[in-house]
Design a protein around this nucleic acid. Sequence first.
DNA 1: TCGCGGTCTGAGAACCATTCCTGGTTGCAG
DNA 2: CTGCAACCAGGAATGGTTCTCAGACCGCGA
Lengths: 147, 147
Amino acid sequence: MSTDPVVAATRALRERGQRVTRPRLAVIEALATLDGHPSAEAVASAVATTSDAVHRATVYRTLDRLADLGVVTHVHSSHGTTSYHLADLAEPHLHARCRTCGTVVDLSADLLDDVRRKVDEANGFDLEPGHVALSGRCAACRAGDHD
Amino acid sequence: MSTDPVVAATRALRERGQRVTRPRLAVIEALATLDGHPSAEAVASAVATTSDAVHRATVYRTLDRLADLGVVTHVHSSHGTTSYHLADLAEPHLHARCRTCGTVVDLSADLLDDVRRKVDEANGFDLEPGHVALSGRCAACRAGDHD
DNA sequence: TCGCGGTCTGAGAACCATTCCTGGTTGCAG
DNA sequence: CTGCAACCAGGAATGGTTCTCAGACCGCGA
């Protein structure tokens, strides 16, 4: 990660013939700033506190565009929410979301390699393991109360 | 599957002190009739064509209640939709949803057993593999067009 | 069989995140 | 600098799901 993620993102935009606009920069910077796996809504409100006010709709559109370009990664989790993070910020990894507290846990990327192979052989289905968060209960919630 | 799923469902309701009402029966029968993994919306419109008209809100409530009772299983898939099916109708199994055509593929239940164990050891996270549909691309869509 | 208590339903509006539409703005190539 | 096209703001529309409340009905006990 020697490259500034913001710089990398803007470069990726230019390379694809996309414009680098203030709203887009604001979204990218918000993603670079926010820890974890913010939802579109979280990004929107983070940007809202900035000097550049960016309209909600623009945030959604921009996140979508950036996801297309591969600049950001989006993960769907259980309750229909989608979270985003800059692709550069971390190694590829999988996600698991606690169904009780909503925390997202990062898992190692190769965890599902075997499964992916098996599913390909058995069903001809090409699994994309990072695209959806697995569900379950995190250590804290398991300890906190009983099932 | 020697037991009629509708009977099993009504019995489960009674055992929990829940009432067996016409709307609930209609929902259960719709689930027993519909193939695959219908969404709440699909169940609602299936029920709407029946002689007993059941209000949308009631369908949602009922599905929720039945899921609590363990009579139906609900699975979240990528686009925020939730699908339901009677728990009795099939062996426990996992789901994978094609991100292109939306088809839900059933996978064998033990597929993620190893992964579950690993995640438990590494993160203390208790994976519930059936609760969320994995994502990817089905055989037909892979053949149909290129990535 | 009948009545009662409490649960369940219907109806429509509220709700929330997301998407669409339109006219005005702005990046960027020339 | 100028013009074109892509982009954005604003706000309304959308679509699925949940809420509220008064009335209906289930199931138990008499």
